[in-house]
């Protein structure tokens, strides 16, 4: 009669145990790599910085900088923005409106950057409100409004600047010295 001591069964089970360990290790390694290689999303912060830069360029000490009302006002030169960055395929967008006390435009709207961001930002906003599909790689826009004082016919009047600024920059990891 063969003596059955169940030692073979335990040795077979250890193979399955190693398989389980390998699966657990693979899960932890993959999860860690995915987590720490993901980008930190600062698009909203960047858009906010851009809108503040523009607003501070238009309004100085609570008063409207009257240079901005000139037809030949160069926003890139006056506000310290690099025009090449706001060209074709840009990761940024801005639209500026200067309004008087009657909410009428005091000059033509100024815009720059990727024009499609205006519509794309509405999709992002709807997505974050739970409407429509989830928009992960769409730009994020912020709206900034600031009141200013100006002289109209010798009297002080109040208007406001409305700036919509958007960013869709994700940053880039360089490999082998390339940019």
């Amino acid at each position: 009669m063969l003596k059955l001591n169940k030692k073979g069964g335990e040795k077979l089970l250890s193979i399955w145990w190693f398989l389980v360990l390998i699966i657990i290790a693979a899960g932890i390694v993959i999860g860690t790599l995915v987590f720490y290689s993901s980008d930190v999303d600062i698009r909203a912060v960047e858009a906010d910085v851009l809108s503040n830069r523009i607003v501070n360029c238009f309004i100085e000490r609570g008063h409207l900088n009257t240079v901005v009302l000139n037809k030949d006002f160069g926003i890139f030169e006056k506000c310290g923005l690099n025009s090449n960055i706001f060209g074709k395929g840009s990761n940024f967008y801005f639209k500026i409106g200067v309004y008087n006390e009657s909410k009428k435009l005091m000059r033509d709207e100024i815009s720059g950057g990727q024009a499609s961001f205006l519509a794309d930002c509405k999709i992002t906003a709807d997505s974050s409100n739970g409407k429509g599909t989830k928009a992960v790689h769409y730009p994020i826009c912020v709206t900034n409004e600031k009141v200013f004082l100006y002289y109209k016919n010798g009297e002080i009047a109040q208007g406001y600047v409305s700036v919509i600024a958007g960013s869709n920059q994700a940053g880039k990891r360089n490999f082998m010295g390339g940019t």
């Binding site: 030169e77 923005l81 880039k172 990891r173 360089n174 010295g177 940019t179």
Partner: peptide, 22 residues
């Protein structure tokens, strides 16, 4: 190109991010 490049490994790789100031 208006880029900030940070390379801590010294292998010519690193991470770059664009700024919009002139």
């Amino acid at each position: 190109n208006n880029r900030v490049i940070v390379d801590l490994s010294g292998k010519g790789q690193g991470y770059s991010f664009q700024y919009f100031s002139s």
